[in-house]
Every structure is written in structure tokens, then in C-alpha cells.
Computed example of a mutant assay.
Amino acid sequence: MTRSLTILGATGSVGSQALDLVARNPGRWRVEALTAGSDVVRLAEAARACGARFAAVADAGKGQALKEALAGSGIESGAGPEAVVEAAARDAEIVITAIVGAAGLPPTMAAVRRGAQIGIANKETLVCAGPVVTAAAKAHGATLLPVDSEHNAIFQVFPHDDPAQVERVILTASGGPFRSRSREAMRGVSVADACKHPTWSMGAKISIDSATLMNKGLELIEAGQLFPVSVDQLGVIIHPQSVIHSMVEYNDGSVLAQLGSPDMRIPIAYAMGWPERIATPAQRLDFAAVAQLSFEKPDLERFPCLALAWAAMRAGGSAPCILNAANEIAVAAFIEGQAGFLDIDAIVAETLAMVPSGRVETLEEVVAVDATARDVARGLVRRRAA
């Protein structure tokens, strides 16, 4: 049976791998819409290759270029944030949300409000507006399927019919490229250094978040929204081999884990095909070659971003949104050479201290908090640059 599919963020790492699965499984999906941030050339190429009906670029200034790149194809096009929301609102059964950052929130909500099956690869959606998104999903009958390898692993081994059986949910983390470095040794690292992830191939933003362990902090907050567990039931363990993607410990002492090679096409395929499983070209695990699986506790002193995320999760309300907004600004400043690697956690901590957190109940309130936190974080970046 052919199912309709929309991919938000089609030119990024997750979006590209989702399109690879589409190409490998002809007839399984009909692509309704694709979106990208500003890469018109790759978006047009992808739309033509998969026969998408609609393509949208978030950069409003690139609308004419996209229209010209699609000339003669019969593919409709749009430009600007509202066009990306339009793509999400179009009638597709499955929507993969792979837009990086808080920009993915409005289009994800558009898909939620029409009751779509949503593969969430944009963790910021649930970090910034978890209660708003999950309440909307329940009200409109949308299904939220996690694409992050860790949450997808948990989803696969979680007792959805009886969550009371669960004692702990344990997220694994590779530890990133600086796992064994002292904090002082991280002071002068470059963007290229931070992007050298030991096991996963990802974009710059998520690679840097992995290097600071903020990525794991955001995933903790997201897990608290996706699964009916308390903050005290969530934990993190460093697992450098990235073979065990996460675990669920039951009240009888049993621990169920999902294992696999570090290939994002496995969780992407799970979200795109659910409730069926789809064959992927991912390398199969050779346990003899893996030989050893090791684990260690995360060091919150060397990697304070994880501690900041724990604190924001416990504070609740708008604190996670403030955390995420400040982190996005700080990481962008690091990439642009306006801040050092160790400035990232400092900017996030100062922003959390300066922006009051409170209850958020609507998307508009989330957007307002996000904007305020970004303004404060930008000011802190400028102060450091001066």
C-alpha cells in the first residue's frame, strides 16, 4: 500500500536519509511535499527525483530561484516560513520533521493539528513546547513517533500499555569527540574539532551539541514529554561504541535495550514505516567485531550543559525553551567565530539566570519566550565579542 509522505528539512542529514529510503523502496511512499532552509539547488533536485508535488524554501528571498529550478516539472513551489507551514499542512499521512531548531515548531504543529503520523527528528519541538504539542496531538489524534535514535530505541522496548512496569529509562550517549579531554583542553577547540563525532555523521549544530553533551540534555527533556515517566526515572550513561541506543529498566530488574549499527536510516525507517518494519541497507551488527561494550557516568563538571538541561527540566515551565533558545544562539556564535567552545554553556547559564521562566500554555507564548531568550543570549554574545 502506497502512503503519502512529507519531509520537512529534506536537504539535511535526516531528510536526505529519508529520501534515500524512498528511493530504495519504489511504490511504498508518494512524496507530497519537501522543504529546505535555503538550499534551492538540492531541494529542486530532490523534488524532481522523488516526484514531489510541492516544494518550499524557508528563505523568502529564494522563492524565484526555486520556481526557476523547478520550471517544467509541474511541481508547485513556495517560499518563506508560511510556505513551510503550508507544506506541513498538506494532506500527507506521514510527516518527517527534520528542521533544525525552534524554526521546526510552527510547521510541526500544523501537521499535528490535522492528525498526521509524525516522525519527530526535531527535538526542539518537544523541548520548547512539549506540553503544548502533546496536548494538541491528543486532541487531534496525531501520532508522535520519535526519530532520534535514543527515543526511537526507547519507543521500541517501552511497555506502552502498562507504563507502571517501568523503573528507569536510560539514554545512552557516545560522549562526543571530547569525552576524555579535560575542560581546559577544550578551551581552544575549533568548530571542525567539535564536529568530528566519533560514531555518527550529523550536521554541524547537532554535532556541536553532542560535543557539549547539550544534545543529551535536550533528549532528556524530550524523553520526559514522549514517555509517561518522571524526571527521577530518567538517566544518562556514556556508551562510546553507540551500539546500544537506549534502555528501559523494568520493575523486576530486567533491562530491555535496542541495539544496532550507528545508522540513522534504522530509526528513520521505523518512523516512516510504522507499524511495519522496513528493510534498510544499514550494516548488520557483528558482535565478535564489536567485541566490547563499555559504559561510564557523564561528567557534569566538564560538561555543564547536561547539568543545565537537568535543572531546566526540573524547573519546568518555559525553562527548557529558554535553555534551547540560548543554546541555539551560543552554538551559532561559536560556528561564526564570535564565541569560544566553552562560552556555549556560560551563555546558556547566564540566559537562564536572566530570563524569568513561567508557565506556557500556547504556541504564541512559547514563541514569545523563545524570542526574549534569543535577544538576551545575543546580547551576551556581543558582550563577549567586545
Rank of each mutant, 00 (worst) to 15 (best):
D299H: 02
K297V: 12
M247V: 01
G273S: 15
E276S: 10
A279K: 13
D252R: 08
F303W: 00
G340K: 08
A319T: 01
A291S: 15
S318K: 09
V290Y: 05
E301G: 10
P320H: 10
A333P: 10
R302T: 12
R314I: 05
G337T: 06
A288Y: 03
L300S: 00
V248M: 02
L342A: 11
A288K: 11
I344G: 12
Y270L: 10
A312I: 05
R265P: 09
R302C: 04
R314C: 11
R314G: 09
Y270I: 12
C305G: 09
R284C: 02
W274G: 01
S318M: 05
D299S: 02
L285T: 07
G253S: 08
L308S: 05
G253Y: 03
G317T: 06
A315W: 00
A332R: 15
G273Y: 06
A257M: 13
C321L: 11
D252I: 03
A333T: 00
A289H: 15
E350A: 15
P262D: 00
S294K: 01
Y250P: 10
C321E: 06
I329W: 00
R284H: 13
A326Y: 00
G340C: 06
S254H: 14
D286S: 14
A325E: 05
A309L: 07
F287D: 13
G253C: 07
M272V: 02
R302V: 00
Q258F: 02
D252G: 06
W274C: 11
S254K: 12
